[in-house]
Design a binder for these strands. Sequence first.
DNA 1: CGGTTGACCAAGT
DNA 2: GACTTGGCCAACC
Length: 101
Amino acid sequence: MKKDSFNENCYALLRKVPRGKVTTYKAIANALGSKAYRAVGNAMNKNPYAPQVPCHRVLASDGSLHGFAHGLARKEEMLKAEGIKINNQKVDLSIFEYKFR
DNA sequence: CGGTTGACCAAGT
DNA sequence: GACTTGGCCAACC
């Protein structure tokens, strides 16, 4: 019943992201064939799939941590725990950005 | 159905 | 480098 196909797609892609890697809102929207960067963020904020979907692996297009439902500090810690290095609240997308193939 | 908001992005000032 | 504007899409009121 494709109803929340958009959200479902976002979560599905996010789930595909391996541990120790991150992605961007733009990449997700682009993979979905849309430009709804904002809608992706909105979906994450509601995140009905809370522990299932690693929303903390989603960063802004320039690697910034923007917001997080549990607090940016939490997101930062989780990413660090996964082996991702954070630099002044930013991540090296050139290294940690996961591309949906 | 219209207006507002939001974990955005890019370009312009 | 900081702020503003326009654009995009979904969810909420």
